[in-house]
């Protein structure tokens, strides 16, 4: 089991680095897809089948395909690559560090809820329990997430409409 974890982690890290390092944007996107697959493999190692398959459907199946779409249609190459000013580069690094800090803090501070389920002997990976937890304990954040998605959808529609009028 541990060797499997090491192999998966090696694939995750390796493809993540290749995503950043490869020159061709399409290759980057494909490496990112592989990275997502290996992360899904980590979920499967926890026996979290639902998270595993949702990760594949949403990230590898939907988001990355749309990303590949845009990259293929825009036909990016080296000549189009803009040199970003140094200030925005520093801003990007700072923003990334802040996000990493928040993530780290949540992981350290968070109370593992799993123990409660382990004590009660419930199958905490099953969809039934997951659905109950989402709609009972975390109802408000869950609904907020859906509102967020709706807002971004409306924003996308609005952007495409605007271009249409200008033309």
């Amino acid at each position: 089991m541990l060797t499997l974890f090491y192999i998966l982690s090696a694939i995750t890290l390796g493809t993540a680095f290749l995503t950043i390092l490869s020159k061709n944007p399409i290759h980057s996107a494909i490496y990112l897809v592989l990275c997502f697959f290996s992360i899904a493999g980590h979920y499967l190692m926890f026996n979290a089948q639902f998270l595993f398959i949702v990760h594949i459907i949403v990230y590898s199946g939907a988001i990355m395909i749309l990303m590949l779409f845009t990259i293929m249609l825009m036909n990016l190459n080296k000549a189009d690559e803009k040199n970003k000013p140094i200030l925005s580069r520093i801003a990007a690094v700072v923003a990334f560090c802040l996000v990493a800090l928040v993530l780290l803090a949540t992981f350290i501070k968070s109370q593992p809820v799993i123990n409660e389920y382990k004590v009660s002997g419930q199958d905490f990976q099953s969809i039934k329990v997951l659905g109950q937890v989402l709609l009972n304990n975390y109802m408000v954040p869950f609904e907020f997430a859906s509102v967020l998605l709706l807002v971004s959808m409306i924003g996308a529609v609005l952007l495409s409409k605007k271009e249409h009028i200008n033309n």
């Binding site: 089948q49 398959i53 594949i56 459907i57 199946g61 969809i127």
Partner: peptide, 12 residues
């Protein structure tokens, strides 16, 4: 347990 979602995952 997630047979149906598996089918969708493979499709996508």
């Amino acid at each position: 347990n997630i047979g149906m979602l598996y089918v969708f995952g493979v499709l996508s």
